[in-house]
């Protein structure tokens, strides 16, 4: 077992995980979205399905992330957001996000992605203008945070596919579920 040291840096993490060819990854994701559009026909349904798929990925991914990154418990949501942006995104997507636009209570913030490997080659045709192409990412974050007892709502604010200058995801912490030992002592 490796010695328990401090959290790894984003680059070290990215170097330690297995990788696939970027184009293969992009086109595979594209094929999934394409297939969902064919199967479900409604763009809204596709958004929902992508979010659900992301959620399912996130609930599993968070374990791998915690196992490999050596991060310790975060003291507040701000630290959590930083870890996601600097380590989480780097480990699984190879990019880092910036965390901005904190509200006064420190319960909601924005992740801004300048570069997004999911959307290479993609151009939204007129027929799918409502499509949230990267909805899987918001689902991943929602799922991952839920596994570490934070209920969140994640929405897209800016999307380069609709002509904005960056990708911006709004993450709002709605409820922090306190961790409880599931049994009473005398049980």
């Amino acid at each position: 077992m490796p010695p328990l040291t401090g959290p790894k840096s984003g680059d070290a993490l990215f170097g330690s995980v297995e990788r696939v060819n970027a184009e293969l990854f992009t086109l595979t994701y594209g094929a999934i979205v394409r297939q969902l559009l064919t199967d479900l026909e409604e763009v809204e349904e596709v958004n929902k399905q992508l979010d659900q798929m992301g959620y399912n990925i996130g609930t599993r991914l968070v374990d791998e992330f915690l196992a490999k990154s050596n991060v310790s418990r975060c003291v507040d949501f701000k630290e959590t957001a930083d870890v996601i942006a600097k380590l989480g995104f780097k480990m699984f997507l190879g990019v880092t996000a910036t965390v901005t636009n904190w509200d006064a209570e420190g319960t909601s913030c924005s992740f801004v992605l300048e570069d997004n490997p999911l959307v290479d080659f993609v151009e939204l045709p007129d027929t799918c203008q409502g499509l949230q192409y990267c909805n899987v990412l918001s689902g991943v974050i929602r799922g991952a945070l839920e596994m570490v007892s934070m209920k969140t709502e994640v929405t897209w604010v800016r999307d380069m596919l609709r002509g904005d200058d960056a990708y911006e995801m709004r993450v709002k912490l709605t409820k922090q579920v306190p961790e409880e030992y599931p049994y009473k002592d005398d049980d």
């Binding site: 994701y29 094929a31 979205v33 290479d120 080659f121 993609v122 151009e123 045709p125």
Partner: peptide
């Protein structure tokens, strides 16, 4: 080729991209 790689473009359909 770039158009072709777009997952939302169906091969053999009209190219409507203004870009």
């Amino acid at each position: 080729i770039k158009i072709f790689l777009n997952p939302l473009y169906l091969p053999g359909s009209r190219i409507t991209s203004s870009h």
